[in-house]
Amino acid sequence: MRIAVPNKGRLHDPTLKLLERAGLHLDNGADRKLYAGTVDPDVTVLFARAADIPEYVWDGAAAVGITGYDQVRESGHDLVDLVDLEFGRCRLVLAAPEDGDITSPADVSGRTVATEFPTIAREYFAEQGIDAEVVEVTGATELTPHVDMADAIIDITSTGTTLAVNRLAVVDEVLSSSARLFAHPDHVDDEAVERLVMALRSVLSAEGKRYLMMNAPRSELDAVRDVIPGLGGPTVMDVAGGESVAVHAVVDERAVYEVVNELKKVGASDILVTEIERLVE
């Protein structure tokens, strides 16, 4: 199985980190490579431009790909969205000069809109019933309203800082995007793809979770259960030669501080809190 991933940019490092955490360690790193093997001899990683990955997957050069939802929508290919990987979040927005007269999508009717995403832009205006001229640019989109190339833009924003610096105000949200795992429809049911989906989901499930281990008096077991219900209840094991039990549980990271204090109150001891790399539910 071949997995296409971004060769650079803001999605590159998080993607490689996610694959590593899922157990797909790359052979000899990824610097200046077009492809790399993994610890699984049947899995190869291809490095490509984020915008080209949908084409790689659609043409069969890769069974699956990791890239932004915006890139897949712009490609026009009907790929299957398998997993939201929960990073690279951003918005594609319609924006216009903050001191201008464009304050709603309808105001761009009969005007020019510059964008690096012409397919998405035209679909958006068609859905809105707006007759706007879409002009494709390949960079510096924010500059176009200030040099009379366009009246408004459709562009990616994460924090809105770049728009604000260029005196542009958001008029409407066109699309919400994040990094996703996509597959060609013919490969969705492949066993290798299903294994990859399970591995990635196990990493995502472990985010924000901590594993607690402790000893507790058997007589206080009900009180301990009340403090840490865990996933379906804590795991309880006998401790040889005593009246204590070993209790293991998964809890939300945000609750650890309070949970540990409550456990101490009901007699728990030797409490150990560890991170979780993967959680297969």
Rank of each mutant, 00 (worst) to 15 (best):
G23C: 10
L18G: 12
I276A: 11
V203A: 00
V57E: 11
W58E: 08
L18H: 07
T235A: 04
K264C: 10
H184I: 09
L221F: 01
V5H: 09
L16K: 04
D270H: 01
V39M: 01
I66W: 03
G76E: 13
S202P: 00
E220R: 07
R91G: 02
Y257S: 15
C90W: 12
Y69H: 07
Q128T: 08
D59W: 05
G23I: 03
V245M: 03
I53M: 10
A96H: 03
L200N: 10
V256T: 10
R278K: 11
L82Y: 08
T138F: 15
A183D: 04
V72R: 06
D190Q: 06
A63Y: 09
D252E: 02
R167L: 09
A36F: 03
R73W: 08
L19R: 01
V135M: 11
S219C: 01
V165H: 14
G233H: 01
L34E: 14
R89S: 14
E191T: 15
G29Q: 02
R21P: 11
G242R: 03
V193C: 02
A246G: 04
V193Y: 02
E136K: 12
D226C: 06
E136V: 12
D148Y: 14
Y124S: 09
E277K: 04
V93F: 11
E74Q: 08
L82K: 09
D81S: 08
Y69W: 08
E258I: 05
S158C: 06
H12R: 01
V45E: 07
A62S: 14
A183N: 12
L24I: 08
A152K: 03
K33G: 04
A249V: 04
T141D: 06
E123V: 00
T103Q: 13
A51Y: 02
H12D: 05
E98T: 09
F125C: 09
T112P: 09
V83F: 02
D40Q: 12
L92C: 05
T103V: 15
D101L: 14
T15K: 05
A192N: 02
S104M: 12
V266L: 06
